[in-house]
């Protein structure tokens, strides 16, 4: 598009291609995790987290291609919105999943929350963790 692409332009283009491909791969990683992990909570790890990095890479590519510092704050704000919302959604879904017995207990090596829930159910003090 440019009349004479300088080496710098080529470098920027190359960087943004890498960012785009890596960002899209993160989406694929989420999908593979969704398909391959056995229970809800491990799927959540795969589903929500790679998106954080994926969106960062894609927005970096947008910023690189626009070649302007003025757009950096908007892109940063878009990313920070994602940073603020993703953990909240993940926590809500994870908590609902744990409370409604969606967790496959045989897949957990340690479950220290279960001990607390059991002792609370027996009517012991809520803050006294067993042992």
């Amino acid at each position: 598009m440019d009349p004479s692409p300088t080496p710098l332009d080529l470098l920027i283009d190359l960087l943004s291609i890498v960012c785009i491909l890596a960002g899209c791969l993160m989406s694929l990683a989420a999908a593979i995790g969704l398909l391959r992990f056995p229970d809800l909570l491990s799927r959540m790890h795969a589903a929500t987290k790679p998106q954080v990095l994926g969106l960062l890479l894609l927005l970096t590519a947008v910023g690189l291609q626009l070649r302007s510092w003025a757009v950096v704050p908007v892109l940063l704000v878009a990313w920070i919105f994602q940073l603020l919302t993703v953990p909240v959604a993940a926590h809500m879904v994870g908590r609902a999943g744990y409370r409604t017995r969606h967790v496959h207990r045989e897949l957990l090596t340690v479950d220290e929350l279960d001990e607390v829930v059991q002792s609370a159910a027996r009517g012991e003090t809520p803050d006294g963790r067993p042992e």
Partner: peptide, 19 residues
């Protein structure tokens, strides 16, 4: 991110977790 990616591809259903 890459660790979880690798875990999804290579361990998959055999992954063991903990709380």
């Amino acid at each position: 991110s890459f660790q979880v990616f690798g875990r999804a591809v290579f361990s998959g259903p055999r992954v063991r977790n903990a709380i």
